[in-house]
């Protein structure tokens, strides 16, 4: 299921991708600062202008940090085959994205990999929504 919706989301990209979001991607995120985060989803916000989800990431010392991860807007996600329950609290995920310029524990999520190894393309403002 997740595999499939990942395919779908990726497949839809070429169909629905606009040129940018309601803000300049580069003004908020640094494409030269890629980040890969692994953690457990603690909250999903199916909200505008971006859907967001939060994960708790444990470092080598066992310290937990919460990261705020940006997706596209719900309307674009829906058109790409997502729903508000595609990501759920408790899911173990690895997220690939770009760090926020502000230095906050925030990134845009470009790719989400689930515990079963499924890689899901996650639309974000980098891709135009």
């Amino acid at each position: 299921m997740r595999i499939v919706f990942g395919f779908l989301a990726a497949a839809m990209l070429a169909v629905v991708a606009p040129v940018s979001a309601h803000h300049s991607f580069a003004a908020q995120y640094d494409a030269n600062q890629p980040v890969t985060l692994t953690g457990v989803v603690t909250k999903v916000e199916w909200t505008n202008p971006h859907a967001r989800f939060y994960i708790n990431v444990k470092d080598a010392d066992g310290q937990t940090t919460t990261w705020n991860l940006e997706l596209a807007s719900p309307n674009y996600l829906k058109r790409a085959g997502w729903s508000s329950t595609s990501l759920k609290e408790g899911d173990e995920v690895t997220v690939e994205g770009s760090l926020a310029r502000s230095g906050a524990n925030m990134a845009n999520a470009r790719m989400v990999t689930f515990a079963d190894g499924t890689r899901v393309f996650a639309r974000s403002s980098a891709d135009g929504a």
Binding site: H22, H23, S24, A27, Q28, E45, T47, N48, P49, H50, R52, N68, S73, P74, N75, K78, R79, A100, R101, S102, A104, M106
Partner: peptide
């Protein structure tokens, strides 16, 4: 579809 942009706009404080 609905798009109520100011529902949860966390972007501005992180734009540089």
């Amino acid at each position: 579809m609905e798009y109520i942009c100011n529902e949860n706009n966390q972007d501005v404080e992180h734009i540089r």
